[in-house]
Design a binder for these strands. Structure first.
Length: 295
DNA sequence: GATGAGCGC
């Protein structure tokens, strides 16, 4: 394996630099070839060895084909536009980086979504029961046998939701007057007040939930720091579920502190122990439990 | 030195 096909802008620049250096020698070498044959990629490169002899190097790579859904595969055929109009299909490595980590999205749900989810989950549950009661599902967060929508605090969450439904039933009686035939009025009910509402929101998505047991506050951060740096810094301790880097609303300038929520409280505790007092870019970080924000 | 944004009625 010798000189590879350039991977990124930086590599391309490095490559160019190299070529400039040995231009006199390299100019009469054939250009590298890339041959794709089924699942195998063959890359042929030429160079001169120490004795000045021409050497041909052939390297074989297995092309990993990942199974993607049709919808995703279809996007490959979309026309590129703007500055990328003339780019070949697929990501351009000079401006696109591929992250293989799991990326968690925040889903802001309303009641209708939850009802859909619930019915979908129960359908699947009955399917898995039909399959001999052995669970075929795996939570993306804790890898236990349940659907991710019920995680990461499955047990805790179920207790919570039972409590909450009681509360909601009481709240609803006063908040949401019913019509005689039992149908709801058109009156707006905030998601948090709806029947069984905002279930996932309370666990995962609501930054203003009353208890934020897994959130730490990091202060004394350098002002140039970015979310991704913070993620990198805390990823070793466990799954980071949310990062909030305080920035000025108008200038976007970092205010030098951030909140990081972990999936597990113990991960957060470890992070505090380890990173508090840690030197980062000539500053000493201060890490402690976050207090719940006002409102 | 500092405890987070926004949307909806």
């Amino acid at each position: 394996m010798d000189r590879m096909v350039p991977q990124s802008w930086a590599d391309q620049m490095a490559e160019q630099g190299d070529n400039d250096l040995d231009e006199g020698l390299a100019s009469d070498l054939p250009p590298p070839e890339e041959i794709i044959d089924g699942d195998t990629k063959k890359i042929i490169t030429y160079r001169y060895n120490e004795e000045g002899k021409k050497v041909k190097t052939v390297s074989y790579y297995r092309i990993e084909r990942r199974q993607v859904s049709k919808a995703i595969a279809m996007r490959k055929s979309w026309k590129k536009f703007g500055n990328a109009k003339r780019d070949p299909p697929g990501p351009n490595p000079s401006n696109t980086s591929i992250v293989s980590d799991d990326i968690f999205m925040q889903f802001i749900s309303n009641r209708d979504d939850d009802q859909l989810d619930a019915s979908r989950d129960s359908n699947l549950d009955s399917k898995s029961q039909a399959l001999g009661n052995r669970s075929i599902v795996k939570c993306r967060y804790c890898e236990q046998d349940h659907w991710t929508s019920k995680c990461p605090y499955k047990d805790k969450f179920e207790q919570l939701s039972i409590l909450k439904e009681k509360d909601n039933a009481a709240a609803q009686a006063s908040v949401e007057p019913k019509l005689e035939d039992g149908k709801k009025t058109g009156k707006y009910v905030p998601p948090g007040m709806r029947e069984g509402g905002n279930k996932r929101g309370d666990v995962m998505t609501s930054s203003k939930s009353k208890d934020e047991p897994n959130t730490i506050r990091v202060t004394n951060l350098p002002e140039e720091i970015m979310d991704s740096d913070i993620r990198e810094l805390f990823l070793p301790f466990g799954r980071v579920v949310r990062i909030f880097l305080a920035k000025d609303k108008y200038t976007g300038q970092s205010k030098g502190f951030a909140f990081v929520s972990f999936e597990k409280r113990e991960d957060a505790a470890n992070a505090i122990k380890a990173v508090n007092g840690f030197g980062y870019a000539n500053l000493i970080l201060n890490v402690e439990w976050a207090k719940p924000s006002n409102n």
